[in-house]
């Protein structure tokens, strides 16, 4: 039975904002299969970023379970979670999360350096990835010398360094113009197609979300069933990817 690469069960997350309890997730069940490109969408405060943070093991749920590759992460020790983040996940954030004192090449090398790989291997892999994201000739540039779109492509290259099985992108195009945004999503699609990496992307731009294989809609911390239904119908009409759930 295919349980999916990511599976959440009754996932809940409650925050304390001052003295007020805020339920960001109210029992979310999703399944994302290996190799899928899924967009998490919904209005502001719907819980999409919280969902991404839970799946990315950046935070711990209040209750419920997250299975990654059939492994229950709620029983995992912190060391194991760190190892998963380093070796199986790649992260892309909405702001350009590069180290300004490091060159483009050094920024990309970072995750592999953290894994303890020899410098030569880190460098070779980083150059290979910069070539993929079409920034080969910018490897010695500092982030401040790159445009927003280029910086985000560097972040994408960095996220791929340790050959992750899953890339988590939190509004990766939020700070980009529409042309750069489309380029980034096209890059995601190409990577997804060529490397088979699973992509879970949070976005609030429907046009970009539609470029994914499947959209999971959230509203008020739950799956937005109504919108999900409409979306599924559209998906079926578009027949983009037969693997979608």
């Amino acid at each position: 039975m295919d349980d999916g690469f990511i599976r959440t069960e009754s996932l809940k997350k409650t925050y304390l904002m001052g003295k007020v309890e805020v339920s960001a997730l109210r029992g979310v069940d999703i399944t994302v299969h290996e190799g899928e490109f899924v967009a998490l969408m919904g209005p502001s405060g719907s819980g999409k970023s919280t969902m991404l943070n839970q799946v990315g093991l950046l935070d711990t749920p209040t209750s419920g379970c997250i299975y990654i590759d059939n492994e229950n992460t709620s029983t995992m020790k912190e060391n194991k979670r760190v190892e998963l983040r380093l070796n199986k996940f790649g992260f892309i954030f909405q702001f350009f999360s590069l180290f300004m004192e490091l060159s483009t090449l050094e920024n990309v090398m970072l995750p592999m350096m953290l894994s303890g790989e020899p410098k030569k291997e880190c460098k070779d892999r980083a150059i290979e990835l910069l070539d993929i994201v079409e920034l080969y000739d910018r490897q010695n540039h500092m982030p401040s010398e790159l445009s927003g779109g280029q910086q985000q492509r560097v972040a994408i290259a960095r996220s791929l360094m340790n050959r992750p099985k899953l890339i988590l992108a939190d509004e990766p195009t939020a700070n980009l113009d529409s042309k750069a945004s489309v380029e980034i999503i096209e890059l995601f699609k190409r990577l997804n197609r060529e490397t088979g990496v699973t992509l879970l992307m949070v976005t609030h731009e429907e046009e970009l979300g539609k470029l994914a294989d499947r959209i999971i809609w959230l509203r008020d911390g739950k799956i937005d069933v109504e919108k999900q239904f409409v979306s599924l119908e559209t998906e079926e009409l578009r027949v983009i990817n037969p693997i979608s759930a």
Partner: peptide, 26 residues
């Protein structure tokens, strides 16, 4: 080299690398 040892080496080397880069940034 075991994965643990590799991880420790990676942590130490990266920490040193980032510290040096940060020091000479400004």
């Amino acid at each position: 080299m075991t994965d643990d040892l590799k991880g420790i080496k990676g942590s130490v080397k990266t920490a040193f690398f980032l510290a040096l880069k940060d020091i000479f940034k400004d």
